[in-house]
């Protein structure tokens, strides 16, 4: 049986444009910032990858590019299946609408069939245990509550590749433990997870492969334990 590649990244380079106002000049200058340079890797179905690196190494840029939110300057990314990116805690919730109404509003937009929406909301409600707070406006939620709702929502869906950008850091200890269990179930149920994280414990527990980024370049890719060791030696 042929290996099913969900993601192929070939020689990916991403550069941003930045406007810089200097001195007394009324005109802004445009500057190119190279965020990623010559990135190459593949993800096969069922593979879970941790992306490690310092702040500003290019982890979030890489995830945004895979999700189709950023234009590469060079190279090609080919994805097969639905890709979702959970960056921060909000998949698009409306601030002046209750958590429950938000779930009902966004579920069909993320592909949940009408007849399955009630079950979906029940599932998210059970996971988040927000209780009566689910009927309050989203605007009034604490960061932890927003994190629970966003994470519960996204992991209740069935993307083929889930990209997580630091989101598991939100919430209390109980939530983190529950989130890990839910993530494991999600991985069993569907495709692959690529997570950018600073939590080495989480990375070693959830992922089989690690990619170490530094200054927009891949320093190492391979076994997660080896990746963590190199990260510890060079970066901490």
């Amino acid at each position: 049986m042929a290996i099913e590649k969900l993601l192929e990244i070939d020689d990916l380079t991403v550069s941003y444009k930045e406007l810089k106002i200097s001195g007394m000049s009324p005109f802004a200058k445009k500057r190119n910032i190279v965020a990623l340079k010559n990135i190459n890797f593949d993800v096969i179905k069922g593979e879970n990858i941790a992306i490690l690196g310092r702040n500003g190494a290019g982890k979030s840029t890489l995830l945004k590019c895979i999700a189709g939110f950023l234009r590469p300057s060079e190279g090609i990314v080919i994805t097969r299946g639905r890709i979702m990116l959970l960056a921060g805690t909000n998949p698009g919730f409306q601030p002046d609408t209750s958590g429950r109404e938000n779930l009902r509003l966004l579920a069909p937009l993320y592909g949940i069939e009408i007849e399955k929406i009630d079950d979906f909301i029940r599932g998210v409600e059970e996971f988040t245990q927000l209780g009566e707070s689910l009927n309050r406006n989203y605007r009034g939620y604490s960061t932890g509550m927003k994190g629970k709702l966003g994470f519960g929502f996204i992991t209740g869906l069935t993307p083929d590749v889930l990209l997580i950008d630091e989101t598991l850091g939100v919430g209390d200890l109980e939530f983190r433990a529950k989130a890990q269990i839910r993530l494991k179930k999600f991985i069993e149920r569907s495709g692959s997870v690529i997570m950018s994280t600073h939590s080495l414990g989480l990375a070693s527990e959830m992922c089989t492969k690690g990619i170490l980024l530094d200054g927009g370049k891949i320093l190492f890719q391979g076994d997660i334990k080896e990746c963590i060791n190199i990260y510890r030696k060079n970066m901490i």
């Binding site: 590019c65 189709g68 590469p72 090609i76 080919i78 994805t79 097969r80």
Partner: peptide, 14 residues
Amino acid sequence: MNYLIRHISQNECK
């Protein structure tokens, strides 16, 4: 396979 396939390059996100 009934997949959404996306080619992301400098020119387009097809």
